[in-house]
Amino acid sequence: MQTIDLNAQNLRELNATLQAQASADTPEASWEVLNPKGSHALAVGLDAPIDVTVLGSTGYYCAGMNKQANITVKGSAGPGVAENMMSGTVVIEGDASQYAGATGHGGLLVIKGNASSRCGISMKGIDIVVHGNIGHMSAFMAQKGNLVVLGDAGDALGDSLYEARLFVRGEVKSLGADCEEKEMRPEHLELLADLLERAGADAKPEEFRRYGSARTLYNFDIDNASAY
């Protein structure tokens, strides 16, 4: 275990050290970051199968563009956590601010507290599991991947949704344009069981409802011509 104390080293040194593991002959497997104090862009752009544990809360864009790494934040995360993640796992033990997991292509983002607005906006293949609630406009224009919410969802869930799957156990305050409840088929229960297990979530797949795209916005409708 290597420890980096941000009271002693600066953020650029931390990120450069962690990013360098991608080309190291024998990457150091386990890292601990002390005193993050809400810093921005912490542990971004990693590309190695290493474990990074951040002891404290982080600011904007923590774990952005992550590939392969397993990053755990023992605190809360500011806006844009795990933005554009490609693979690996990011776990936030507290809450996450707006647009968690935005545009993510792959990997698993677990938020053990609540996520605020725009969670999973424009997600492109990432899996996101939120143990608490999510805010308004979540999964806006979400294209691919799975968003699982054990608590409630705010207004306009899944507005202008493409092919991402949304699973919510609690209440949905309102659905966005072109988002609808869909039938939960056996393959969805199986998918959900796997995601819940990997996210350490104590919930049964049968307790969730599934939402997806009604696909009415995919093609131009001549009846809407007057709106243009």
Binding site: K37, G38, S76, D95, S116, H136
Partner: peptide, 22 residues
Amino acid sequence: SEYRALVNLPGIESAKVWEPEP
């Protein structure tokens, strides 16, 4: 505006910290 601004307040580690709702 950010958590960064609060990190040196006394007892912040055990404070109730949250994002105000819209």
